[in-house]
Amino acid sequence: MLEISGLRAGYGEVEVLRGIDIAVHSGEIVAVLGSNGVGKTTLNHVLSGVLTPRAGSITFEGRSLMGAASTAIVEAGLIHVPEGRKIFPNMNVRENLELGSYRRAKNNRARNLERVFETFPRLRERMGQAAGTLSGGEQQMVAIGRGMMAEPRLLILDEPSLGLSPLLVEEMFTLIRKLNADGMPIMLVEQNVVQSLEIAQRAYIIENGIVTMAGTAESIASDPELKRAYLGL
């Protein structure tokens, strides 16, 4: 579905992505893993049309998105749930969710809203509540639900476990697995290496703006270099 080849991007004179190659196929969860500062956020900014790439190619379902506007990317069905949730705190839960269908799937808004509430029953209970008064886990549900409202062809989740308690992290990864089992391809961009590899089919490790490891999640999880670098083993 998504093929990224030789992607280079940065800010000013600083090059952050130095030739990234990543592919996501239909039906997969693909984990893109790395610590802070390796280029994960820059990659997501490029894929969302917020940052213009300098070189390489981005192809989504056979269509080039290289340098495309963010509105065109959303309309194509490549939907990004950003790091830090980025909800509208003074708007209620329903209003936040409905904004997810502003550029795409507007005609199916009622049906998709019901699907979100079936996935997140707690949001139905808090439909009229200001989103800024929700717990961190509930705000993450709003952010993911807002992405679902656009009927994503591919959903990019950026650090969905960030700032959550261990119990809510477990719940979040269970939800991601369920969304994928229901047919949604997911690109999971995370620092949480262990749990991401448990639910992903394939994975990429990014260090210093390049992919240093790629393969099945199982093979990467058992790689001695990964255990040394990320798990301290």
Rank of each mutant, 00 (worst) to 15 (best):
R111N: 10
I29F: 03
A203L: 08
A68V: 12
M149V: 12
A131Q: 12
G56F: 09
G34L: 08
G147C: 03
L167G: 07
A214F: 00
G145N: 10
D223G: 09
A217F: 05
A203R: 13
G77R: 02
Q129I: 05
T212P: 09
V74L: 00
A76Q: 03
Q201A: 05
S64W: 09
E75L: 02
N36I: 03
V81H: 08
Q139Y: 08
M184C: 15
V93I: 07
S222Y: 03
M187F: 04
E198G: 08
N90L: 02
E61G: 05
Q191R: 10
G10K: 00
G67F: 12
G37P: 00
F120V: 09
G39Y: 11
L2C: 07
S5F: 11
P89Q: 10
S35D: 11
M127A: 14
M184D: 12
Q140C: 10
L157Y: 01
S196M: 09
I29H: 01
E95I: 01
G132V: 08
T52L: 11
N108V: 11
M172E: 05
E114I: 10
L99Q: 11
T119N: 04
K86F: 10
A131W: 09
P53G: 02
G128R: 13
G56Q: 08
S48H: 03
S135W: 07
Q140G: 05
T119E: 04
L134N: 04
L33V: 09
S219L: 10
V116F: 14
G84Q: 01
L99P: 07
L47A: 04
D223A: 15
G84H: 04
R85T: 01
G136P: 06
I205R: 11
R115F: 14
M1I: 09
V169C: 07
V194L: 10
N90Q: 08
R126L: 14
P185E: 03
T41M: 06
L17R: 11
Y230Q: 00
G10N: 01
L155H: 06
L164D: 06
G209P: 13
N180P: 02
G137C: 08
G56L: 14
G132P: 03
I4C: 00
E75M: 11
S70D: 11
R228M: 15
L233V: 15
E98M: 07
G145W: 03
K227N: 15
